[in-house]
């Protein structure tokens, strides 16, 4: 059993096999193998408590579906179920997704990282610049002239597919 402590001092107890899905944690455990129980506590200082909850839920779901089984049953119902579950899991607000990306990056959980990034990328798909700005709060600090003149002439090939 491993204890994770978040930045707001909440404790999370996780089975070692489950937490091993994070390559960072796996390396830390590997480093401390053979030492005492106190060393099985890992501080995750840069993450608030809401995110470990989500990450652990994700771990538990994926722990039930090892890679070999996932590969062999591509057409299988289990794989479809997992996909549906993931779609629901990532259906949250953009701030949580951002935190998940950062957490997955620092804990090194490739599948969680990719899933969260894909969800964020959906925001950028098929939307105008204004719409994206509204949803993701990306500030548009271009001046009026830049917006009217410079960008269109510089990037004409991106927009109109015309090559002057």
């Amino acid at each position: 059993m491993i204890t994770l402590i978040s930045s707001d001092k909440r404790k999370f107890h996780v089975l070692e096999e489950v937490a091993n899905q994070s390559l960072t944690i796996r390396d830390v455990i590997e480093d401390r193998r053979g030492r005492r129980r106190a060393d099985r506590i890992i501080l995750v200082t840069n993450i608030n408590s809401k995110i470990p909850e989500k990450v652990i839920v994700y771990w538990l779901r994926h722990f039930l579906m090892p890679e070999e089984i996932a590969h062999a049953s591509m057409s299988h119902k289990k794989a479809e179920k997992l996909k549906k579950w993931e779609a629901k899991f990532f259906d949250t607000d953009i701030d949580t997704l951002n935190d998940l990306i950062l957490a997955a990056d620092s804990l090194d959980i490739p599948s969680l990282f990719d899933g969260a990034c894909e969800k964020v990328s959906d925001i950028l798909k098929n939307r105008s610049a204004e719409e994206v700005g509204e949803i993701s709060k990306i500030e548009n600090e271009f001046t009026h002239e830049e917006e009217e003149e410079e960008i269109p002439s510089e990037n004409a090939w991106v927009w109109r597919n015309e090559f002057a």
């Binding site: 990306i101 950062l102 990056d105 990282f113 990719d114 990034c117 894909e118 964020v120 990328s121 959906d122 950028l124 798909k125 098929n126 610049a129 994206v132 700005g133 990306i138 500030e139 548009n140 600090e141 271009f142 917006e147 960008i151 990037n155 991106v158 927009w159």
Partner: peptide, 25 residues
């Protein structure tokens, strides 16, 4: 590098078009 991963899920056309979002982009 993380924004690049997010952009990797877009097609190249969509990714290139993010250039109008802001100066950062």
């Amino acid at each position: 590098c993380l924004i690049h991963v997010i952009m990797s899920f877009l097609t190249a056309q969509e990714a290139v078009r993010t250039c109008v979002l802001s100066k950062r982009w």
